[in-house]
């Protein structure tokens, strides 16, 4: 308990908490990681020569899972807010809610993957399968790690290791969880929705339209 308090309040030459700095640096590197996966998927989109591809995506189901993950972000920030106000019971409730909503999201993803497999789409089927399943699979792995982290914080509230004085512990986990949420916001928007229109053609088309409006076309 003393250790956790010490690392939350230690003095540094930058004036920034080192662990929080580390988390932001990690998130910065993870931006590049997911950026690479998303770019690879977009580049190879529409180039699969066999098997099911873009038209297999189920937008209504994914909209629900997106909503669930968004609400888990709300639960996460409410857990932190509760802890910072010294309301440990509230923090505990919202931590559990966040983990449960994350589990529901994972459930949706497993359902989606099972449906794809049922329709013949696996990572080995074609370029769409490889790039899409690896990208969303890595995101799901991040969510799963986050769920374990959240449950560990939840149980730590019972033995006094997490309390108002070291809310930074929950804040750092929250940064990770919200990052997982924003990655999904981008994947849902760019890959599921925009991608369904054929991103390359329409970005080009939109560029021509913008040029025409500005008088360059």
């Amino acid at each position: 308990m003393q250790y956790l308090t010490d690392v939350a309040t230690h003095r540094t030459s930058t004036g920034l908490n080192s662990r929080k700095l580390l988390m932001w640096a990690f998130l910065g590197s993870d931006v590049l990681f997911f950026g690479t996966l998303i770019a690879t998927h977009l580049v190879y989109r529409g180039q699969s020569v066999s098997g099911p591809a873009e038209n297999i995506l189920d937008i209504p189901i994914t909209s629900i899972s997106t909503f669930v993950l968004l609400m888990s972000s709300l639960a996460m920030v409410l857990a932190l807010s509760g802890l910072q106000r010294g309301k440990i019971g509230e923090a505990r409730f919202w931590l559990a809610a966040t983990a449960l909503l994350g589990s529901v999201f994972i459930g949706f993803q497993m359902y989606e993957f099972a449906e794809f497999a049922h329709e013949g789409l696996t990572p080995r089927t074609n370029l769409f399968g490889s790039t899409f399943l690896i990208m969303t699979g890595f995101h799901g792995t991040h969510v799963a790690i986050g769920i374990f982290w959240l449950w560990s914080l939840f149980f730590a509230t019972f033995n006094g290791k997490i309390h108002q004085g070291n809310s930074l512990e929950v804040e750092i986990a929250g940064l990770y969880w919200h990052f997982v949420d924003i990655v999904w916001i981008v994947i849902f928007g760019v890959v599921y929705l925009v991608g369904a229109y054929g991103v390359e053609e329409h970005v080009e088309e939109a560029g021509h339209a913008a040029a025409a409006i500005l008088g360059f076309g």
Binding site: V31, F34, G35, T36, I38, A39, T40, L42, V43, V199
Partner: peptide, 11 residues
């Protein structure tokens, strides 16, 4: 910024 640039450049 780097990530968005990479995506746009690759596309």
């Amino acid at each position: 910024v780097i990530m968005v640039s990479v995506v746009v450049a690759l596309l």
